[in-house]
């Protein structure tokens, strides 16, 4: 009945190794290694550009692995940081020219880097149609985000709706923390003025988005 100590020791060691392997490497060392890799993976790029690959606090929170949910505290922090980031145009007018917005909404250019240089464009596009349906007559649209067809027709174009729309485009995470949508104003991809035009494209009753 007496099992030799050596056998127990061997069994114990095997168990420890198995448990260690299952959790190896731990989350913190994986994060450290991943970040070290990022630092080393853009050789010869100017610091102004490699800075883009450094995460801000909200991006860190929003990089959950395998669909893990945000805690309430994390969601609240992302919302707070995002609200604080929102800036308004100098004119204080939040709905601009829907025709300008129509052009921007289908434009996907701007901000991409080749050979260490940011692409040379007159202005960045607003990237909307990559992910959202807009004008019902345009079928070349993505579906990562919800359809925005009839956005203004459904919601109206009151000051409150216009402000909400502006803020959601400026920093989508102020309302939907960690959604797939880029923080287009806060991240610097669009100017406040450009965003006002997109707001008009979504809310103006004359916009093709809202035409019956």
């Amino acid at each position: 009945m007496n099992i030799p100590t050596a056998v127990w020791a061997a069994l114990g060691a095997a168990l420890l190794i198995a448990a260690g392997c299952a959790s190896f490497p731990d989350a913190q060392s994986t994060r450290d290694l991943g970040e070290k890799m990022v630092t080393a993976s853009y050789p010869g790029m100017p610091e102004l550009l490699t800075r883009r690959a450094v995460q801000d606090r909200a991006q860190q929170i929003c990089s959950k692995i395998g669909g893990a949910k945000l805690t309430q505290e994390e969601a609240a922090e992302v919302v707070r940081l995002s609200r604080e980031s929102i800036q308004y145009p100098a004119s204080a007018k939040l709905a601009g020219d829907w025709k300008e917005g129509a052009r921007l909404a289908y434009a996907g250019q701007g901000g991409r880097i080749v050979g260490g240089k940011v692409e040379s464009v007159k202005e960045n596009g607003a990237l909307c149609s990559n992910c959202h349906a807009l004008d019902p007559g345009e079928v070349n649209v993505g579906n990562i985000g919800p359809s925005l067809t009839g956005y203004g027709a459904q919601r109206g174009s009151s000051d409150a709706i216009v402000k909400l729309t502006y803020e959601r485009i400026y920093n989508a995470w102020a309302y939907s923390p960690c959604s797939n949508m880029p923080r287009l104003g806060a991240g610097g991809h669009l100017t406040p003025e450009q965003i006002t035009h997109v707001v008009a494209y979504l809310t103006d009753p004359q916009s093709p988005v809202n035409r019956k």
Binding site: G34, Q55, N130, L184, G187
Partner: peptide, 28 residues
């Protein structure tokens, strides 16, 4: 795996933004 889910840059994208869900399209 960590890098696949890591969101960064001016458009907050990670691989997972476009390749983490069912039946999605960028435009068509």
């Amino acid at each position: 795996e960590y890098l696949f889910h890591r969101r960064t840059g001016p458009t907050d994208f990670g691989c997972v933004s476009c390749h983490g869900d069912e039946g999605k399209r960028i435009r068509l």
